[in-house]
Computed example of a mutant assay.
Amino acid sequence: MGYLNHQQGYREGLLELRSVVKKDNYAVLTPDGLVNNVVPGFDDCDITILGSPRIGARFVDYLVTLKNNGGNTQGFGGNGIQTFIYVVYGNITVTVDGKDYDLTEGGYVYAPPHLEMTFVNNNKGQDSRVFLYKKRYQEAKGVGQPEVITGNKNDLTWKAYEGMEEVQVTDFLPADLAYDMNIHILSFKPGASHGYIETHVQEHGAYVLSGRGVYNLDNDWMPVDKGDYIFMAAYTPQATYAVGLDEEFSYIYSKDANRDIEL
């Protein structure tokens, strides 16, 4: 059963799937093959675990559909684990350190590693969907401590990606060494692309918010679509072309940053 597209029972044709998984290298996960996981603390939610250490990542990404009054009131993160939540659609309330944040589509909250977050659906009987991230924080001397960050993507500053006006990027977290990672959205107009095939030490987990692209992952060209998830390990060659007629190819993604490599 592909629970995100509500497919159940036998298919008319042969079983087939666009998903490709090459552990410790890259993965493309499509909605058709995702299943509903059961995770303690998440009540009345459909939750699927996307990127994780079992695929080669040093973080965990989730896609969570909050139903009715569903959410996580037990507490998510803290004790050295930093977290980030982004609203794909709907309306939720996130609580960190006793303060409530009401988020609509495009809204987000980052909780530093010493604080837990809780969250509940607040969409008047309709579902909300969130992209959820966690990663163990990497301490560094003399850089200060990260703080709670919140906002909405519509209020952020967008800039040309490496001088290309057809490719826009925005950053969710400040350019501050206290943060050992960042979350971005990268958006390509149809026909736009990266300027080169990137090969770097940072790893990414990316969820496609809109549009379509053809992604080079370790020199395999993979079609990707809205709702797909992409994992890119350290040093995996990567670049994309946006395809389609009029919708921008846009994805939210994480990147480790501001730290040396531990031995």
Rank of each mutant, 00 (worst) to 15 (best):
Q168A: 06
V224G: 06
V148K: 06
E105S: 09
S210E: 13
L186Q: 12
G70K: 07
F131L: 01
E139S: 12
I261M: 15
K22P: 01
G70W: 10
L263C: 07
F131Q: 01
Y235Q: 09
E162I: 08
T170V: 09
H6D: 01
S250V: 12
T93K: 05
L209Q: 13
A233D: 14
Y161W: 12
F119N: 07
G98A: 08
T93I: 08
N182K: 10
K134R: 06
L245V: 15
A27I: 01
G142F: 07
A111L: 03
I261D: 14
V109Q: 08
G191Q: 11
T104H: 12
V87R: 01
G90P: 11
L103D: 04
P146M: 05
N25P: 02
Y26P: 01
S52F: 00
V64M: 02
V64H: 02
G227V: 15
I49F: 00
Q168T: 05
M117T: 13
G90S: 10
G77W: 03
G56L: 02
I197F: 08
G9R: 00
T170S: 10
E248M: 15
N37V: 03
Y179T: 10
S52M: 00
S52R: 00
K159M: 15
I55S: 00
G142N: 12
L156P: 03
D102V: 10
H200N: 11
S19H: 05
Q7K: 03
V224M: 04
Y137L: 03
N79L: 07
A27L: 02
I47A: 01
K124W: 11
V224C: 06
V167K: 13
Y86V: 07
Q202W: 11
Q238C: 15
N123I: 03
V167T: 14
E198P: 05
G78M: 07
K124C: 12
D220F: 06
Y110V: 03
N91K: 15
Y101L: 08
